[in-house]
Design a protein around this nucleic acid. Structure first.
Length: 313
DNA sequence: CGCCTTTGACCGGCGC
DNA sequence: GCGCCGGTCAAAGGCG
């Protein structure tokens, strides 16, 4: 909270109007910026019908995506969302690159995927064998648009940067991070919106399979509250940052952090997307009411997710 | 010494 | 088939 606050202050300096951090979700690969959330062009030309609504994602939809890995505490990727007037939640189909959206039939199984990943890594170390023929499965992804001067938002997890690439159509590079926990294959990409430099787009891929590590580097204050599983989303990292969108943090009742406006974004495959689309209604979005609502939805979501068998669906 | 960042190279997917 | 682009690897170096 403290951190957040400081961030908000920064924001205020930059933009007097916005007193809060804005976070919105959308599918990765979308140039985070100011597109109308409803019809955002993708880099590939097709258009993503983004969902914009005051509600966060519905239970079934988002959690289905998120299927927590087997046993461990589901680090729900994001849960989140406290919405404020400025926040928005968007849901979009999976990114273009993964047309097949791997996920559908078998939703991304993080565990499996991680294994694959490991194999790949091992192989690569040895000979750099080619990747598997089959397309790599994509883990569920969640993107957040956060208004912040800080690129890396500390979300309590430890991340190691493994790459940085210049992004087409953007003067800002995209950074790639991987959760440092051995068994956790969660990755995240962080990039700054070219259209609105105050916006940082953080895309999480995968679900943490471990509790949120409380490390010295991570922002302390917050962590204490967040505890258990990390809702991985949030940003930040690299270890150096300071702010924490706490949204994620898990707390038993997922949303105890009412202060931040957050938006949850989830990328999903088209099928899921469509279902979500039906459920959301773009119009209603009022901060307080929506907030309350969010809580309700989220709460509902949680249990649902926990109980749900990932594959059912 | 361990962990992290930086950075150039490599690889695969995709569009033309 | 070719080139572009996104994503990842891994060596090298920095820092506490």
């Amino acid at each position: 909270m403290l951190l957040i606050k400081s961030m908000a202050d920064k924001e205020n300096k930059l933009k007097p109007d916005t007193s809060s951090i804005e976070i919105s979700t959308f599918s990765d690969q979308i140039p985070a910026s100011s597109y109308s959330l409803f019809d955002m062009p993708t880099e590939k030309g097709s258009s993503l019908s983004l969902m914009f609504s005051s509600y966060p994602i519905t239970t079934s939809s988002i959690f289905d995506l998120l299927q927590p890995p087997p046993p461990p505490p589901p680090a729900l990727p994001s849960q989140i969302v406290n919405k404020t007037p400025s926040s928005e939640i968007v849901n979009t189909p999976n990114s273009s690159s993964s047309t097949e959206a791997a996920a559908n039939d078998d939703q991304l199984q993080p565990t499996t995927q991680r294994v694959d990943d490991d194999d790949q890594h091992k192989n690569k170390k040895q000979l750099k064998p080619k990747k598997k023929k089959q397309k790599r499965e994509r883990e569920p992804r969640f993107a957040f648009m956060t208004k912040s001067e800080v690129d890396h938002l500390d979300d309590g997890f430890r991340w190691r940067k493994y790459g940085q690439k210049a992004v087409k159509n953007s003067p800002f590079p995209r950074s790639y991070y991987r959760c440092t926990t051995a068994t956790c294959g969660v990755k995240k990409r962080v990039e700054r919106s070219s259209e609105d430099t105050s916006i940082v787009v953080t895309t999480y891929e995968g679900i943490h399979t471990h509790p949120c590590p409380i490390t010295p580097r991570s922002s302390i204050g917050i962590l204490s509250e967040t505890t258990a599983y990390g809702g991985s989303i949030g940003g930040g990292g690299g270890g150096s940052s300071l702010f924490i969108p706490q949204f994620h943090y898990q707390q038993p009742t997922y949303f105890q952090t009412p202060t931040l406006p957050i938006n949850l974004i989830s990328t999903s495959d088209s099928s899921l997307y469509s279902s979500q689309e039906r459920r959301f209604s773009p119009s209603t979005s009022s901060s307080s009411s929506s907030l309350a609502r969010d809580h309700g939805l989220l709460q509902d979501m949680v249990p649902s997710q926990m109980r749900r068998d990932p594959k059912q669906e």
